[in-house]
Nucleic acid binder design. Structure first.
Length: 418
RNA sequence: GGAGGGGUGGCAGAGCGGUUGAAUGCACCGGUCUUGAAAACCGGAGACGGCGCAAGUCGUUCGCGGGUUCGAAUCCCGCCCCCUCCGCCA
C-alpha cells in the first residue's frame, strides 16, 4: 500500500515512479487522487455534524439529570442525525472505491532498481563436464520419483526418497544454524492462511492465479512462509530497541503454476510443492537498503559454501512483484541446461507490506510510531538447491560429490549413482 | 462437532443506554523529599486522522463489521479470537 499522503503531496513524483514499472497504473492513480479529494470534502462536514451531536448530547444529558425536558433539542438532533447518516453513507461509498484502488497500486521502485535485468557479478565457473552431462533427474533416479508422484497427485508433484531426504534435512539444519548465527530466529509457521495475510504481503490481488484455495474453508495454501512471517507482527507497535527482528521460516510452499503449462516440465525445477527456508526482516526504515545487501550477502555465502556457481541479477523494475521496491535474484549455473536459473531471490518491500499489515515501530526516544520496513529473501529453496547440488557435484560415473559442509549434519559425502 | 463462559488503555480490572476516552491497582515518565536510591507524596502519559508555525482544537477508537437510538463500551444481528467441559484425534 502506498502512503496516501505521499500521493497527495507529490502526485507527479509517484506517477513518474509508477511509470518506471511500465504498467499503466496512471488511471488508477488519477482515480485515487479524485476519490481522496471527495473524501476530504465530505469528512470535515461529517465531523462538524458529529461535533454538534456530541455537544448536544451533553446538554441533553445534563437537562435530563436536572429533571428538565429536552424534547426540542432531541427533535433538532433527530434532523442532524439524519444528515450525518446520509453523509456517512456517502463517505462509505467513496471509501469502498478508494481502498481497492489504492491497494492495487504496486510499490514505488527504488531508484537503484534496474531498468532491465542486470548481472551484477558471477561467482564460480560456469562449467560443463568433459563427459556426457546428466541432469538432476538422471542423477537422482527414483530418489526423485516423478512417475509415482504424478500418479498420486498429478503432474509437477514428486516423491523425494532415500538419501535425498537425508540431504534435504541436513541442508535445512545447516542453513538454520548458519542463520541463527546471523540473528535469525527459526520459525515453523502455519501454511494455511487467511486472505488478509495474502493481501498484507501484496500476493493478493497481484498473483491470485498462483495460489491454492481451500474449497470449504476460507483459507489459502501459502506459496511462501514470507506470508506468515510478515503477519507475525501484524497490528503491532514494536518498541525502538527491539529492531531489527529477523526470522528464518521453514515450511512447505505451494504454487499452482497456472500459466506455466509446458514450462520446465522435467524434474523438480518447477513443482506445486517444495520446502523452503525463508529469511524475513523487520527493520527501521533507514536500515532497509543495508539489510537488503545483508540478505543478499547471506544468500551468496550459502551458495558459495555449497560450491554452486552463480550470478547475481538486479531485477528489472517491470519484473518486480507488487510489493517489491527492489529485488536481487541469485541464479545458479546448471550444467545440463548450460545456463543460469533462478535459485534465490531477495526483495526490499520497504513500507508496502508493513502499511498493509499495520506494523509500526516507535523510534527510540519515544516519538510517534511509524511504519517500519520489511524484507524477505530465500535462504534455501530446497528443490532447486538439490538440483544445483546434484548437477554441479556430478562425477563421470554418475555419482555426486556432496558439499562437505553438510557432512556434519548427516549428509553422506557421496551420492551413489542411480 | 456439542454445551457453556469471555474479549475494555502496556498489564490486571471496574463500568452494562446519557457531561465515561473510560474508575482503581501495577508498570512507565517528570517533579518534591533524599548524600544517592527505595518508600511516600504531587503531576503526566494510549493510538489514528483533520485543521494549525505552535499552543491547541475537532473527529475516530472499549475484538471486527453492521443495526437500533437525539445519544452505545453498555441493547440487537453477523463475523473473528480466547477459555472450560464433553466428543473425536496425530
Amino acid at each position: 500500500m502506498l502512503d496516501i499522503r505521499l500521493i497527495r503531496r507529490d502526485p507527479d513524483a509517484v506517477r513518474a515512479a509508477l511509470a518506471r514499472r511500465g504498467e499503466s497504473d496512471v488511471g488508477v492513480l488519477d482515480q485515487v487522487l479524485a476519490l481522496d479529494v471527495r473524501r476530504r470534502e465530505i469528512l470535515p462536514r461529517l465531523e462538524g455534524l458529529r461535533a454538534e451531536q456530541n455537544a448536544a448530547n451533553q446538554a441533553i444529558a445534563a437537562a435530563k439529570k436536572a429533571g428538565e425536558g429536552a424534547e426540542e433539542a432531541i427533535a433538532r438532533m433527530r434532523a442532524v442525525a439524519g444528515e450525518a447518516k446520509a453523509l456517512g453513507e456517502e463517505l462509505a461509498q467513496v471509501d469502498a472505491q478508494l481502498t481497492p484502488a489504492l491497494s492495487q497500486l504496486p510499490n514505488l521502485p527504488d531508484p537503484t532498481a534496474a531498468p532491465e535485468d542486470t548481472v551484477l557479478k558471477e561467482v564460480g565457473e560456469p562449467w560443463v563436464p568433459d563427459y556426457e552431462v546428466r541432469d538432476h533427474l538422471t542423477l537422482a533416479g527414483e530418489r526423485i520419483d516423478m512417475e509415482r508422484g504424478a500418479r498420486l497427485s498429478g503432474s509437477r508433484f514428486a516423491y523425494l526418497r532415500g538419501d535425498l531426504v537425508r540431504l534435504e534435512l541436513s541442508l535445512v539444519s545447516w542453513t538454520l544454524d548458519l542463520l541463527a548465527e546471523q540473528g535469525f530466529e527459526p520459525v515453523i509457521p502455519p501454511v494455511l492462511v487467511r486472505e488478509e495475510a495474502l493481501f498484507g504481503t501484496g500476493m493478493l490481488p497481484d498473483t491470485e492465479q498462483q495460489i491454492y484455495r481451500l474449497a470449504d474453508d476460507d483459507l489459502y495454501l501459502a506459496g511462501t512462509s514470507e506470508v506468515a512471517l510478515a503477519s507475525l507482527h501484524a497490528g503491532e507497535i514494536l518498541e525502538g530497541d527491539t529492531l531489527p527482528l529477523r526470522y528464518a521460516g521453514f515450511s512447505p510452499c505451494f504454487r499452482r503454476e497456472a500459466g506455466a503449462a509446458g514450462k520446465d516440465t522435467r524434474g523438480i525445477f518447477r513443482v506445486h510443492q517444495f520446502d523452503k527456508v525463508e529469511m524475513f526482516s523487520f527493520v527501521d526504515p533507514s536500515e532497509s537498503a543495508a539489510e537488503h545487501e545483508r540478505l543478499l550477502a547471506i544468500e551468496e555465502s550459502i551458495l558459495q559454501a555449497l560450491g554452486i556457481p552463480y550470478r547475481v541479477v538486479n531485477i528489472a523494475v517491470d519484473d518486480l512483484g507488487a510489493s517489491a521496491a527492489k529485488k536481487y535474484d541469485c541464479e545458479a549455473w546448471l550444467p545440463s541446461q548450460q545456463r543460469y536459473r533462478e535459485l534465490t531471490s531477495t526483495s526490499n518491500t520497504t513500507d508496502y507490506q508493513a502499511r498493509r499489515l499495520d506494523i509500526r515501530h516507535r523510534p527510540t526516544g519515544g516519538m510517534k510510531p511509524e511504519i517500519l520496513h520489511t524484507l524477505n529473501g530465500t535462504a534455501v529453496a530446497v528443490g532447486r538447491t538439490l538440483i544445483a547440488i546434484l548437477e554441479n557435484g556430478q562425477q563421470e560415473d554418475g555419482s555426486v560429490a556432496l558439499p562437505a559442509v553438510l557432512g556434519a549434519y548427516g549428509a553422506p559425502a557421496v551420492l551413489p549413482p542411480a
